[in-house]
Structures are given as C-alpha cells and as structure tokens.
Design a binder for these strands. Structure first.
Lengths: 93, 93
DNA sequence: AAAATTTGGTTTATATTATAAACCGCTTTA
DNA sequence: TAAAGCGGTTTATAATATAAACCAAATTTT
C-alpha cells in the first residue's frame, strides 16, 4: 500500500488544499470561514503547506486592512492529485 | 465540510480497515505483512479500532501457536463507508 | 538437554502533530 | 482617547503515531 503524503493527510490541510484546488485564490478569512477552523490552527497549517511548497501565501492590503491570500502551486496540485490516487486504493474506489 | 472520523483518519488504521472490508477475516501476521507496519504499531492501532467497536479481535490457537484474528464489525463497516463519503467531498470525487 | 533463536505479540517511551489559548499591532468606533 | 474588533502569529498543551524495548512460549541449534 502506498504511503499517504503526511502533509496532506491532515483534516485541515486537506480541506484548505481542496478549496484551493477549485478557486484561483482564497484569503485567510475565507479559508477560516469555510473550514470552520480557529485562526491559530489555520495559521500553523498554512505555514506547513507553504513550507512544503504546496501553496504560496501573499500578504497585501485592501485599503488599510491586511489581506493574506493563498494559492496552490503546481507542486501542490501534483501532490494533491497523487494523494487522491493513493487514497483510492485505501477506500476501494 | 464534514468532520473526518479521527479513528479512521490514520494511515495504518485505514489500511487495516481497508483490508478487513474485503476479506472475511485477517490475522495479525497477515495484516502486518500487508501494511508493512511494525508489530508494536499494529498492536496499538488494532486496540484502538477494537475499542472503538470497529473490529473484533479474537485470540486463538493453530496447533500450539497463538493466532490473533480480526474482523470488521457492522459498526466498523458503517463508519468506513461514512468516512469514504465524507472524504469524497475533500477529494472532489 | 541447555542455550540460542524465532514467533507472535504487548507495553512503554519518544517524537510528531494538531489544536487552542494567549498574545500582538493596527484600525475603527464610542 | 479608551475600548473593542480585525487579522493574524506565537507559544503552550493535549493527543497521536511510531518505534524501541520487552516478554512468554515454541522452535531450532549445538
């Protein structure tokens, strides 16, 4: 049985990646709402995805307010797809 | 997004359940081989699945050698299927 | 037949992970 | 200008996964 990428095999990180796979980009607040996570947890997990090279995190401004936006990278996209393939074997899909 | 059952969202436990979903029963040695896990890890995870009511663990003998066999329970089967359904949303399947 | 090895595990210790709580700077509102 | 809110980060804690150490019984070796 194939190994399941431990960076993706985490509920919150997987949820984030799942969202990012379907949208061009998403900001911190949106991801927090959609995943119903705490800000702290989300912050930590975004860091891990970013350090793994699976997403890019960009800090910008909207007026005076900060805005952190995330996008999946090509590497992240590939990793996600491989994870899905590996999981299928486990799920008997 | 639905919660992913934490008992199943573990590589080794999921692998074990995946195997048990397809066979009538499987023994410790077989599960260890198939999952390529260490005996200690497998033992711990089987306990957790057993305590959760997802599998039954039976100790018997084959000649003079002990034999620990595992079977998925109805509850385990249901939990596995729900886990698969929940995951599909994450994987965009 | 005693000693050493293997088999089939369990228990315990450790490293990693996930998560929440506490915190921080900036902005808006009262 | 004090207090409350927004958008996060850092740090502490709890839970998890994993391997290492261990154990009893059976088998093999000398």
């Amino acid at each position: 049985m194939k190994e399941l990428d431990p960076i993706l095999h985490s509920q919150l990180r997987l949820a984030v990646m799942s969202i990012l796979m379907n949208v061009d980009e998403a900001d911190f607040v949106y991801l927090k709402e959609q995943t119903e996570s705490t800000a702290g947890n989300l912050s930590v997990q975004l860091d891990k995805l970013s350090n793994a090279g699976y997403i890019t995190v960009t800090k910008g401004f909207v007026g005076k307010k900060t805005r952190t936006t995330c996008q999946v990278t090509e590497q992240g996209r590939k990793a996600f797809e491989e994870y899905v393939e590996a999981l299928k074997a486990y799920l008997n899909l």
